[in-house]
Design a protein around this nucleic acid. Structure first.
Lengths: 337, 337
DNA sequence: TTGTATGCGTTATCAT
DNA sequence: ATGATAACGCATACAA
């Protein structure tokens, strides 16, 4: 690979001048610029970003850490965030990590070691940060969970109010006449999934508010996947013949649940209503269209990008923790009874 | 951020010794090791990977470039590839790029500039490579398109035979009794999407083999998305009342098509059969389950990872270009008539 | 306008 | 076993 030295040697100029050409400095003569640029093209020269970053103290890229490989919802956020950052002239590197804490720790180390000038964390638990975030000195944003209580000076967060949104969903199902509402998703007992835990809490609260008993066996934990939703719905419907509605704590879970309902010889929404959470694209193309709680991906993304760009330029600003509004997106999967 | 110098200064040792501790060299006394490690922990030291890479000549990470933000199929490959690489102890960086050539060029430059020790390209067109790949000297693998004709010494490729697979799909629909088969997906005329072009070619060939006329207005181009499929199916069904089956050149297109069919007051498969391509997870959870051509994600991933790891260690090996077998995955979306 | 020299944080090659 | 130092590729302050 050609280096700046090669360019200097071949063009007959010094590395100083070459560097100036490379960095668009004004004080270099037209003739020199042209000659040097020709050599650069001829050699297919690519600057070594490692050297550049070393010299400049920090990596020019922004690191995006995304928790979980197949989380469609997070990926839609990823897409928007990345697009917005590119539009702002920033380059990005994405790191996917498995959902267990060890990996997250690894990712944080990696992020620290890459010396990015900023980073996003899509879908992390607070616990992961509490222990390992202090190493990081550049501005960061946590998405889909609030980091307010962590109180790091350089970590902002934007999230939907999971408790409130889940409660809203339950109320909606209640208003549609449902009294036996099953809830699938969220790891029972353990808090492995903070999101699942919060949503579950919202459900219990809402059920009590509606004067319903949050019966234990109306809850069934599930992985946040179609397969998980399929199995959980099947289990729930076998155990409780009286449920008329299922609230799936994520759309992917809901898709699995609908498939399970069909495979058990029932129909959605005629026999069992299903409600999702997130508002991913397929909600509007599935059969039936899925009624869901739509998180505002656009707002989450744009706010967080603005925030990071702001902190990049004015690091002295304090962190922001904001809750963005959600929205009930009506489809065809919930029936009034 | 603490550097190796700080550790040296505070621990009272030289940077040489600290570096030895950091890199697990044997020739350092137990006592020194312990004392230095304590300082490392105290300072939350993170090695600067930029400096490390600069010194070592190349980045330790493998760069994965993925073309298109919302390609579920490619993301499933991404997941498997990444998992396999991590299992092999390699770290990865992912770069998503928009589907236009300019971005691809940018990504290749970026990749060249990051000095990765190897890279994957998921879903690129040959044209992108022809012009810009020569800069890259480390081993690379192109997935889902064959790079045989490019003949770069350091670029292998693994792909499904798109022509053959699409032809197979058409033959299957024919065998099910369908004679008026619409094809949606693939950019008509321009070769923007190589994959779409190849699959379209397979369709035409198969139609002729079946003695059918590849009528022009049975083809409708579409973006590779649910939305694209929705619009294309609607357009096609309005234009041609006689089609009994639609072959969508990707599963996401098929999902949109099925939704369109319902919205037009028809049913799949009773009125219109739909066949997809790729074999993404949702095929098995949709309503109806989608009949599709399943690409072997597992094989594509494992072969390509093995290939890259091999070339990392034995760079003198020549490139490999392999076609992996596809499979008809029967669902419920195609009816025998 | 151009060239020279220094240093970024690290590893590795010498000495000691 | 440990310390000193050169080198990696680049940007930049300073000199010319």
């Amino acid at each position: 690979m050609a280096t700046i030295k090669d360019i200097a040697r071949i063009s007959g100029y010094s590395i100083g001048t070459v560097s100036r050409v490379l960095n668009q400095h004004p004080d270099v003569s037209e003739k020199s610029r042209e000659r040097i640029e020709k050599v650069i093209r001829d050699l297919n020269y690519e600057p070594n970003s490692n050297a550049k970053m070393l010299k400049q103290g920090s990596n020019s890229a922004i690191t995006l850490i995304i928790r979980g490989y197949h989380n469609i919802f997070l990926q839609s956020i990823l897409e928007e965030v990345q697009l917005a950052l590119h539009k702002a002239g920033e380059s990005t590197a994405v790191v996917f990590v498995d959902e267990n804490e060890n990996e997250v720790q690894t990712a944080l180390h990696l992020a620290a070691s890459m010396r990015p000038k900023g980073f996003f964390f899509l879908g992390g638990n607070l616990g992961d940060f509490r222990s390992y975030f202090s190493e990081i000195k550049v501005p960061g944003v946590l998405l889909t969970n609030s980091a307010r209580e962590l109180d790091f000076p350089n970590l902002s967060s934007y999230a939907t109010d999971d408790v409130e949104a889940a409660a809203y969903a339950i109320h909606y199902l209640y208003d549609c006449g449902h009294r036996k509402i099953g809830v699938i998703g969220g790891a029972a007992g353990n808090k492995e999934s903070q999101t699942g835990y919060l949503r579950t809490r919202g459900c219990s609260r809402a059920l009590r508010e509606c004067g319903l008993d949050p019966e234990e066996d109306l809850y069934l934990p599930s992985r946040f996947s179609m397969d998980g939703g399929y199995k959980a719905a099947k289990g729930l419907l076998e155990r409780r013949k009286d449920v008329t509605a299922i609230f799936a704590l994520a759309d992917t879970i809901a898709i699995g649940a609908i498939r399970a309902i069909r495979d058990m010889g029932m129909r959605c929404p005629e026999d069992i209503s299903v409600m999702g959470f997130d508002g991913i694209e397929i909600c509007q193309y599935g059969v039936p269209r899925l009624t869901t709680i739509r998180q505002d991906v656009g707002l989450l993304s744009s706010l967080s990008v603005s925030n990071l760009l702001l902190h990049l330029h004015y690091p002295q600003n304090g962190p922001t923790h904001e809750i963005v509004p959600f929205q009930l997106q009506k489809g065809e999967s919930v029936r009034h009874i």
